[in-house]
């Protein structure tokens, strides 16, 4: 792309270099820390119940465990969220939807596999209609249990927050 600006000739892809500059800025030290702090306390999961662990996921947002204390707010649409909870078994039909949902989410995004089924199939490990989430999505935290207790969900959120604050998960591509 060639742009001319007040007689000066700018050669190169302006959009890409702007993106590069932005990424460079965002990866600088104080900005990066503030960014990671903000992201870690604002993990909003999508309303995407893949299977029965949704019952305990709902309980973890409910008064007794109140995950909103941790800045965790199940929110409306895919576009506004940054966390995908695989709540239990991923059947083949649902796996298509899961990939779809993951791709539609804006970066940076995280995936948590909740329940034994979302790790290795759990009690349904030898069913013909099961997909392991870790085969199709990058899962960051696993929660064992069937269903996991809401405490374990909270623990997973805390672990994910810690990992984000350590700067291990959020990277802005400078392609």
């Amino acid at each position: 792309m060639v742009c001319s600006l007040e007689g000066k000739l700018l050669v190169g892809n302006l959009e890409r270099s702007a993106r590069k500059a932005a990424a460079w800025l965002v990866e600088k030290r104080p900005v990066r820390d503030i960014r990671d702090w903000g992201i870690s306390f604002s993990l909003w999961p999508v309303h995407f119940t893949t299977a029965c662990c949704g019952a305990e996921f709902a309980a973890s947002a409910a008064p007794k465990y109140d995950a909103e204390r941790l800045g965790f707010l199940p929110f409306i649409g895919i576009r506004q969220c940054n966390l995908l909870f695989i709540e239990g078994t991923l059947s083949k039909k649902m796996a298509e939807a899961a990939i779809w949902v993951y791709e539609q989410m804006p970066e940076p995004k995280f995936v948590v596999g909740m329940g034994a089924c979302a790790i290795d199939g759990g009690i349904f490990w030898n069913s013909y209609n099961i997909v392991r989430p870790m085969d199709i999505l990058p899962v960051h935290v696993f929660i064992p249990g069937c269903p996991p207790r809401p405490e374990a969900v909270a623990q997973a959120i805390i672990m994910l927050q810690r990992k984000i604050r350590r700067g291990e998960l959020v990277r802005y591509e400078t392609r």
């Binding site: 965002v26 960014r35 702090w37 903000g38 604002s42 909003w44 800045g71 804006p106 970066e107 959020v170």
Partner: peptide
């Protein structure tokens, strides 16, 4: 925190 998250979201 939410604002920062939105700011740095794609």
């Amino acid at each position: 925190a939410d604002l920062l998250r939105y700011l740095f979201q794609e």
